[in-house]
C-alpha cells in the first residue's frame, strides 16, 4: 500500500520507492531505504503534506511524493 494512505499514529516499513532521479536519491539520503521503519506523526492542518518519523527524526513529505512510496504495515 501507499505511504500516503497510512493513518496518523500507524507504523509501517518501506518496501520500495517508485520514483527516479533526484527524488529517489534525496529519499535515499534521508534514510528511506528498504526495510526502514516509518511512523506517521500527523498531517498538516490542511491535510497535506504529512509528517513522518524515520530513523528517529522528523521529516515532512507531500502526499504526491508519499504516493510513490510502497510500504507494509507493521
Amino acid at each position: 500500500m501507499c505511504l500516503s494512505h497510512i493513518k496518523k499514529g500507524q507504523k509501517c516499513r518501506l518496501v520500495s520507492i517508485n520514483g527516479e532521479g533526484k527524488l529517489k536519491q534525496k529519499l535515499l539520503d534521508m534514510g528511506f531505504i528498504f526495510g526502514a521503519d516509518i511512523e506517521v506523526i500527523r498531517e498538516a492542518p490542511l491535510y497535506d503534506p504529512m509528517e513522518l518519523k524515520i530513523h528517529n527524526y522528523l521529516i515532512s513529505l507531500r502526499k504526491s511524493e508519499a504516493n510513490l512510496l510502497e510500504v507494509e504495515l507493521v
Binding site: 534525496k26 534521508m30 509528517e51 522528523l58 513529505l61
Partner: peptide, 12 residues
C-alpha cells in the same frame, strides 16, 4: 525550471 521534491526535515 527544476522543481524539488518537498522532502524537508522538521528539526528539533
Amino acid at each position: 525550471r527544476e522543481t524539488s521534491p518537498f522532502v524537508m526535515e522538521l528539526p528539533p
